[in-house]
Computed example of a mutant assay.
Amino acid sequence: MKQKNPNPQGKGLVPVLAALGNASSGVRIVPKHLEQMTADLFTSMFVLESRFSFKPVRGRKYWLYRYGERFQLSPVFPQQWSVPTFDQVIGCCELHDDLAWTLELSAETAQDAAFIAYIRTRRETLEQALQASPTLEAALPVYVASLPFYQRVFASALASSLGKSMHLSGIAQLNYQQAFKALPASF
């Protein structure tokens, strides 16, 4: 009788630690302004909260699509779809060497007032969470249980990268208001 594999995806502790190590290897850390750090955190978490089931590669272009109320990251460019199944092309994403994501909105999405309002609301939610946190470092997404495997790994690696950047900037142990007041003197 053949036994069922209790871990069919091979995502036990050793592979998780290896994935975290691989995601963090070769990361280039630079000090960042508070505004850049919050922008990187917001954009990166927006991308990482979308659906995808592949391991992203630094420096490669990906596309973010909207399907109804959900977002999905894909390596497939909009022009490569024989029959588009998505509702909207949100834009082009890239994972950078510091593990932060950038998102360049498509022309259509940049003009979409409802989407821009949605983003503004999500950004305000992040700002409120940062303001409520005792320190900036405590607000980083070290472990986000609700995220799937690769998203969780990259969120944790992003937290490490941003944490090191904040230490270089001298703002990691400050709360949001203190870091905001220290911003002009930091750089």
Rank of each mutant, 00 (worst) to 15 (best):
R152S: 11
F187G: 12
G12S: 14
L183V: 02
Q72T: 12
S24L: 12
A139P: 08
P15C: 07
T102D: 15
A145E: 15
L34Q: 00
F46S: 13
A145I: 09
N5L: 10
E35R: 05
A159F: 09
L34C: 02
F115W: 13
Q80M: 10
N22Y: 03
Q3A: 11
L126D: 12
S160V: 06
A18S: 13
W63M: 04
R28L: 09
T125A: 14
A132F: 05
T38I: 00
L103K: 02
S74W: 13
I29N: 07
F42L: 08
A157W: 03
L136Y: 04
Q80T: 04
P75N: 05
P8N: 11
L130R: 02
L13Y: 13
A18N: 13
F154C: 03
A172P: 05
D98H: 08
Q3W: 09
P78H: 06
V27G: 05
A172H: 11
Q80R: 11
A23S: 06
E127G: 02
T121C: 04
F180R: 14
I171Y: 02
S146I: 10
S133G: 09
P134C: 07
L13W: 07
Q88Y: 00
A23G: 07
E35S: 10
V14Y: 01
V142C: 03
E108I: 10
A182Q: 13
S24E: 12
P184Q: 05
P15W: 05
K61T: 14
A114Q: 08
Y176P: 00
L162T: 06
N5F: 06
S133H: 08
F180A: 14
A182H: 12
Q88T: 07
A100V: 08
T135M: 15
Q80W: 04
E127H: 15
Q128C: 06
A138P: 01
P78K: 08
